[in-house]
Design a protein around this nucleic acid. Structure first.
Lengths: 107, 107
DNA sequence: TATCTATGTAAGTCATGACTTACGAAGATG
DNA sequence: CATCTTCGTAAGTCATGACTTACATAGATA
């Protein structure tokens, strides 16, 4: 359930396709698999990974199981990226200033 | 240079370690490799991937090459996650409302 | 120019993980 | 109770990619 789990979970294209399907709303495994070029067990395994990463939650509905997006895992990733973003921006600004000072000296 | 490139680039632990090193400031390949348990060519290859993903930029400095964080690739990932976050939150709220209505009927 | 430093690339090895089919379990339905 | 639906898990296959060593190149330096 760390942000690292979320990243490696989202790194797979098939899993991103599953996430995309769930953006429209909750769906059972079979329905998700119907819209994808992989087998149903494959989707099942992917949903397991997504669930472990906190990106998806499952709620039993009688015979089947509804999967829906979960904010938790996504949030941890957002925090990591925001922090990284700050540092990258700072590095970029420092470099820009250094470049400006370099030009200044050439005057 | 898409957000998908950025995700799969950040999915690797070694590459995240390289990124972490660069958060402290720009560094040449050798310096980065010294702080890691992998060989210098491995770091070189990773930096190539990070560069292709727009997460890192290289600036030649005489004999060596300085690598530093780049905001571009990070930003694309942030946009994707923000959008995903919105949908996840909406799904979560719908589910909460449905649950509340369910409880209401049980009264 | 000869050499040392700093780096990228080539080629090959090996582990991880994404996929398949086969099977078993749990709830709905006749 | 028997069967159908919906799903998860086990076992095995195969491709991707992370790593290594060996080699080639470009700039600094004596």
């Amino acid at each position: 359930m760390t942000y690292e789990d979320a990243i490696s979970a989202l790194a797979d294209p098939t899993r991103r396709a599953i996430i995309d399907r769930l953006r429209a709303g909750p769906a059972p495994v079979g329905t998700v698999a119907d819209g994808l070029p992989v087998s149903r067990p494959a989707v099942s395994q992917h949903l397991r990974v997504l669930s472990d990463a906190g990106l998806v939650v499952m709620t039993p509905r009688g015979n089947h199981r509804l999967y829906s997006l979960a904010p938790t895992g996504i949030d941890s990733l957002r925090h990591y990226l925001d922090s990284l973003w700050d540092d990258a921006l700072a590095a970029f600004q420092r470099e820009a200033e250094a470049l400006a000072k370099q030009k200044e000296q050439k005057k």
